[in-house]
C-alpha cells in the first residue's frame, strides 16, 4: 500500500489529468490480456495430422488411453476434434495481438521440453588427408573437438538439436555446407570432408544397467570436395 506522501502525490496527478489512471489501467490490462491469450499453447503441431500420426505421438496416446481406461481410437478422435476446435478459436482470439507481439517483442510460447524426444544423435565431421579419413569432431566426444567453441555454443546447439530430429529440412543441407566451408579454411591440406548424422533410440534405465549399447543408424551422410570452397 502507498504511504500518505505517495497518496498525496498521486491525488495531485489525478486532479491534473483525471482520465490518465483509467487510460493506464486500460493499456496495462490490454497488455496482460495479450500475453495471457498468446501464451496459450499454439504449436502448429497441434493441427498437424502428420505429427499426430508419428509413432512417438501414437505411443503416447496409447499410454494415456491405458492410464485413463478409455478406448484408444475414441480417445484419439475425441482429442483430435477438440484440439482442432481449440486451434481455430485460439487463432481467432489472438489475431488482434499478433502485430503487437511482432513489433514489441512480446511473443509468448513456452513449449519447453513438453515431450522429451526418445531419439538422439551425434554429428561426426571427418576430414580426408592423404587418402585417409579421420574424425575431427564428434558430438560430446572429448577426443574429436575441432570447432567445439562454435558447435557447443547454446544457439548452435539448439539448431543442431532441431536438425537431429528433422534432417530432412533444407536447413540441414545448408548447415552441412557451412561446416564444410569451415573445414576447408581450417584444414588447407584436406581434400574432402564427410559430415554424418548417426541417430538412435534412447535406452531405458534397465537397458543401460544391463550394458546394452545404443543401436545407432546412419541417418544422413554427405561428402564435400573441399576444392570448391577455396
Amino acid at each position: 500500500m502507498s504511504s500518505p506522501a505517495q497518496t498525496e502525490l498521486s491525488e495531485r496527478a489525478v486532479r491534473k489529468r483525471p482520465w490518465w489512471p483509467h487510460l493506464r489501467a486500460v493499456l496495462v490490462l490490454s497488455h496482460l490480456c495479450a500475453i495471457v491469450l498468446m501464451s496459450l499453447p499454439s504449436s502448429h503441431r497441434l493441427a498437424s495430422r502428420a505429427y499426430w500420426d508419428k509413432a512417438e505421438q501414437q505411443a503416447d496416446l496409447t499410454r494415456w488411453a491405458n492410464t485413463l481406461g478409455v478406448d484408444r481410437e475414441e480417445f484419439e478422435e475425441f482429442l483430435w476434434e477438440w484440439t482442432q476446435r481449440y486451434v481455430r478459436i485460439r487463432k481467432k482470439i489472438t489475431k488482434p495481438f499478433l502485430k503487437y507481439a511482432d513489433y514489441t517483442g512480446t511473443r509468448q510460447g513456452w513449449t519447453m521440453f513438453s515431450g522429451p524426444r526418445r531419439r538422439t544423435g551425434r554429428y561426426v565431421v571427418e576430414v580426408e588427408q592423404d587418402g585417409v579419413f579421420r574424425s575431427v569432431f564428434r558430438t560430446q566426444d572429448s577426443s574429436a573437438t575441432w570447432n567445439r567453441s562454435q558447435f557447443e555454443h547454446n544457439r548452435l546447439r539448439k539448431l543442431m538439436a532441431k536438425l537431429t530430429t528433422h534432417p530432412q529440412l533444407p536447413a540441414y543441407a545448408q548447415f552441412s555446407r557451412w561446416v564444410a566451408k569451415r573445414v576447408a579454411e581450417d584444414f588447407p591440406e584436406a581434400t574432402r570432408c564427410k559430415i554424418t548424422l548417426d541417430t538412435w533410440k534412447t535406452l531405458s534405465p534397465g537397458q543401460h544397467r544391463h550394458g546394452v549399447k545404443p543401436d545407432a543408424k546412419r541417418t544422413r551422410s554427405q561428402m564435400f570436395t573441399l576444392e570448391v570452397f577455396r
Binding site: 499453447p41 513449449t111 521440453f113 534405465p205
Partner: peptide, 27 residues
C-alpha cells in the same frame, strides 16, 4: 510451460520419468 508438458512421461501415470529421457538427449 507446465501445462504444456502433456507427454505421459511427465505425469504420475508415466512414472514421472521425463527428466531421465531429457538427460538421454545429447543435443
Amino acid at each position: 510451460t507446465g501445462l504444456q508438458k502433456s507427454a505421459h512421461i511427465w505425469t504420475p501415470g508415466g512414472g514421472y520419468t521425463a527428466l531421465y529421457w531429457v538427460l538421454q538427449d545429447l543435443g
